[in-house]
Amino acid sequence: MTRLSVNRKAYEVEADPNTPLLWVIRDDCGLTGTKFGCGVAQCGSCTVHLDGEARRSCVTPLKAAVGKEVTTIEGLSPDSTHALQKAWIEVDVPQCGYCQSGQIMSAVILLKENKKPTDADIDAAMSGIVCRCGTYNRIRDAIKKAAMNGGAK
């Protein structure tokens, strides 16, 4: 049994400590907002926060999360009112939507560390997250909009 805290809720999971956090979150905790896209740290769909830092959960073993706080898209806000979620809705960013949890979770960290990101800052922070539907320009707009509206809470 491994103890884990996800979105401020305690879980006890049976998974082997080397299991990627992604599959623990999805299969053991039942939180499916975090997505699987490549399994090898290439696409960022699986991005979550570990003690406030962006992590690719597909290559992060469960044991690395022990004693830390894991935040997933479900834990970002109780009612989709995080500044970035609001901006995402306002700009109508998603197409298929599959990559968007990873996009938003990455953008949250960007805005936490940088209140007014430039285009270059956005490129640097967001280029690891693939969107096969090509929503990049809207993601950029939404990040800027959220920054204008006060950014991360």
């Binding site: 939180l31 499916t32 907002g33 806000s77 995402w88 809705i89 998603p94 939507g97």
Partner: peptide
């Protein structure tokens, strides 16, 4: 369908 795609419920 946007709201469900920004909070993990989709």
């Amino acid at each position: 369908d946007t709201p469900a795609k920004v909070n993990g419920t989709g």
